[in-house]
């Protein structure tokens, strides 16, 4: 497994853990409000965006020999 894959899997597991108990329990409250949204809502949106950028990074950093159209 390459380092790139390892980093990807680790970050993915962190994001997944953040979506459920116990990590989400820490961020499940109402205050502080972030950009007008309760913390519990803002946290989920933050993780959604994190997961988007994580996969985007993984895709863009793919070595060129394994991409391309077959």
């Amino acid at each position: 497994m390459t380092n790139r894959k390892r980093i990807f899997v680790c970050l993915l597991l962190i994001i997944q853990a953040g979506l459920i108990w116990p990590v989400y329990a820490i961020f499940s409250g109402i205050k502080p409000m972030i950009l007008g949204l309760p913390l519990s809502f803002a946290w989920i949106i933050f993780l959604l965006l994190s997961s988007f950028f994580l996969l985007l990074w993984y895709h863009l950093s793919e070595p060129s020999d394994s991409t391309g159209e077959r």
Binding site: I15, L19, P38, S40, I44, L47, S51
Partner: peptide, 12 residues
């Protein structure tokens, strides 16, 4: 807040 579940599962 239970509705956040709908966003959460589509995240990953």
């Amino acid at each position: 807040a239970a509705a956040f579940y709908i966003i959460a599962y589509g995240t990953t």
